[in-house]
Design a protein around this nucleic acid. Sequence first.
DNA 1: CGCGTAACGGTTGAC
DNA 2: CTGTCAACCGTTACG
Length: 455
Amino acid sequence: MKFTLGLGSRAWRVSWERAAAAVAGWRANRGALRSGARRISSPRPGRRGSRLARTLPLCLSGDGGARALPDCFGPSPRRSGARQPAGPRAMEQTYGEVNQLGGVFVNGRPLPNAIRLRIVELAQLGIRPCDISRQLRVSHGCVSKILARYNETGSILPGAIGGSKPRVTTPNVVKHIRDYKQGDPGIFAWEIRDRLLADGVCDKYNVPSVSSISRILRNKIGNLAQPGPYEASKQPPPQPALPYNHIYQYPYPSPVSPTGAKMGSHPGVPGTAGHVSIPRSWPSAHSVSNILGIRTFMEQTGALAGSEGTTYSPKMEDWASVNRTAFPTAQAVNGLEKPVLEADIKYPQSASSLSAVGTFLPACAYPASNQHGVYSASGGGYLAPGPPWPPAQGPPLAPPGASVAVHGGELSASAAVTFKHPSREAADRKPPSPGAKAPDALGSLHGLPIPASTS
DNA sequence: CGCGTAACGGTTGAC
DNA sequence: CTGTCAACCGTTACG
């Protein structure tokens, strides 16, 4: 039902076969959870017809449409290992879909960082979101979301997709619990919890729940002692949780950890303190410090290879291939090749011309020529072919505080570093690392002439 | 008309 | 190895 509705509202979509799979009965639950009253009975009737026809000339033709897209979204089988929808046509799956603006996107996947970055940049140049949306052919909802996130977190990066919340009952935690229990067999679970916090074993984000602790006591630690009900007169609950900076220290100013973005084993949760808007408490790619860390590290080392495994890179598909056709030079920036290859794994699109994002987003600069290429991928690009780009002289730059550090090298592999509203950050997040923050971020923008034309 | 956002189908990755 | 789950994604359409 829900599926039907959804499909109906997007009947034009290119990769309808995937939707047709519609196997995910469980998804309905999620949908139900999220469902409001809005679309209970009809799939937003009415829109798709004419508008679609007007805006999607290139992908709706023929069979499957997507294959009519530019080769950057050409047909390509999923790589082994990737989930494949059941059905004989699975191998014909393509990733490209085209939105109403004619922009190409991959459903369920983040926009390339280059696009995200561009959105932020344009916004900081004073271009209205609606114009950004049109220029880049990204839905205004997405523009809004990215800008909102950027304003909130200072990061242009998408959130961490997939995975499960890291277990809080790590061996170390269990060990401490055991120690506490051994030290005081009558200790309550909530006391253990407090001690875990107080001792810095856990932080408020990853401290096990009382029930979890009880379960640990019961299952893993067994009967060191059974807390009796009569022991209720213990200490009152304790002190407020430690300031989470205690635990959630940013990697900097110490040499930034290259593993910032994905610190699966990090005892703390990097960057959390400053990321009020990021619900996930486990390592988040949004972490400014992570981003900084990655970036700084990369800038310093000039290599990603050593860190990519633990950074954001696994997610950095960035559908690099999406933009590849626009960059036929296929110059892999040092250290970026692997991520790019990984991107290929995820987005096995036309590999005709590989180019890491970093290739077209050179460090410390954002040459118009390259920029131009970024969004002008033939046909499937994000630039509207017709309407001219806003005049180069454009609106004034964003407020002085606003800045976007543009360093292309990391874009494809780990992180794009963006900062904004330092004052705000000062309040609720760590101040940007002086070393990591581009000293002349605005300068980067200054040096980022808006392409005179989108064509 | 511009924007914020709910709903939606989709992907991802830990478990 | 496979399925489940809960996170995130971008698009669409509503208000």
